[in-house]
Amino acid sequence: MDLLKWARMKSPWICHFNTGGCNACDIEVVAVLTPRFDVERFGVLLKGSPRHADVLVVTGPVTQQSEARLKRVYEQMAEPKFVLAVGVCTCSGGVFHGCYNARGGVDTVIPVDVYIGGCPPRPSEIIDGVVHVLNKIAGGGLAEKSSVNEGQAVQ
């Protein structure tokens, strides 16, 4: 089982999903994948299909339009799966908090493993977040996931 844990730590494939953000976080996520930061050193690959990915990178507040899609994308991923919330809108709703068309952050819809603040976060912070996800894998901390908190949803 240790070999499997090692393999999981060495090859976190990510899938990127925008739930209605302003694109700033998306540009930073893309910047992480450029030769300057070169996350393929750590085995990170960007995958098109959620079925191939281990880590779902979510950016943006969850709009009503994207909520059902976000749930489906999460359910399409194979276990073990992790969720990385990138940017302050994704963590809590940010400036869209209380807006008529937005839920208050991603954790109102799906369980989140690691939150990264910032508007937008720097690429180095996103890499740091991925490292936190990897530490969770190393500790076997699959149970520490935040539960879906329906009460936080702002109507």
Binding site: L4, D38, R41, A78
Partner: peptide
Amino acid sequence: ARLQNRVGPPLFQPFADLIKLLGKEDI
């Protein structure tokens, strides 16, 4: 990776990918 001026993956990377995929849920 080297032709793109990157460092590139380490030697065991394809092996780690293979083991990880073998250990994942099969939908």
